[in-house]
Computed example of a mutant assay.
Amino acid sequence: MSFLVSEELSFRIPVELRYETRDPYAVRLTFHLPGDAPVTWAFSRELLVDGVNGPCGEGDVHISPHGSDPLSDALIRLQVGTDTALFKVSIAPLIAFLDRTDRLVPLGQERALADFDSHLDEALGRILADSTG
């Protein structure tokens, strides 16, 4: 992916896309920035599917096709408070990734794999650990 610092300045960074069947609704992007610890963002797989087809997203993650050929590139905007990071990525690898995730868990079939009780217990444990630490 390319990290777009401004209209004139961008640089490529390695990004790992991950999908795990134990969390079938989410995809993860891990950014490996030079000199920093990797940063992982998790968001809805459906958001990524929708974003390669048209602008979408509310809150912290926005995805939209970019350029004169709508199937060439996508922009991914990540926001924390007032800080925003903008990335450009070729859509072809995103579609290939989404195709592989769909073979593991077809879109719309996530509920069959989701173990809501264990995910809730895990999330509550993390929240409680963070609030006491």
Results as ranks from 00 to 15, higher is better:
57 G>N: 03
74 A>I: 09
110 E>M: 08
38 P>E: 02
68 S>P: 06
99 D>F: 08
120 L>G: 09
79 Q>C: 07
132 T>G: 12
123 A>R: 13
87 F>C: 02
58 E>L: 02
11 F>W: 15
91 I>D: 01
52 V>Y: 01
38 P>Y: 01
84 T>F: 14
72 S>V: 00
81 G>M: 10
85 A>Y: 04
90 S>H: 09
127 I>N: 05
123 A>Y: 12
69 D>A: 00
24 P>L: 10
92 A>E: 11
51 G>E: 04
108 G>V: 03
112 A>C: 10
60 D>Q: 00
98 L>Q: 01
123 A>V: 08
23 D>V: 14
115 D>Y: 12
123 A>K: 11
117 D>G: 11
5 V>T: 12
98 L>G: 02
1 M>Q: 10
56 C>I: 06
96 A>I: 01
30 T>M: 03
126 R>F: 12
10 S>V: 01
29 L>K: 04
20 E>C: 11
20 E>D: 15
124 L>Q: 15
43 F>R: 06
70 P>E: 02
94 L>I: 08
67 G>I: 05
20 E>L: 14
101 T>P: 00
120 L>N: 13
74 A>G: 05
26 A>Q: 08
18 R>Q: 08
66 H>D: 06
81 G>E: 07
125 G>K: 14
38 P>N: 08
88 K>P: 02
22 R>V: 09
20 E>P: 05
106 P>W: 05
98 L>I: 01
77 R>N: 00
27 V>L: 00
131 S>H: 13
38 P>G: 01
14 P>Q: 09
98 L>E: 07
113 L>E: 13
118 S>D: 13
6 S>E: 00
27 V>D: 02
34 P>Q: 11
20 E>M: 12
94 L>R: 02
83 D>N: 10
5 V>E: 13
109 Q>L: 08
46 E>K: 09
45 R>T: 04
120 L>Y: 13
88 K>G: 08
82 T>I: 07
67 G>L: 00
122 E>W: 14
84 T>Y: 15
60 D>A: 05
122 E>K: 15
85 A>M: 11
11 F>Q: 14
124 L>E: 14
23 D>Q: 14
25 Y>C: 06
78 L>C: 04
66 H>P: 01
22 R>K: 15
27 V>C: 01
3 F>N: 11
110 E>I: 04
102 D>E: 13
126 R>D: 10
17 L>V: 09
117 D>S: 13
85 A>L: 12
37 A>K: 14
97 F>R: 09
60 D>P: 02
66 H>R: 11
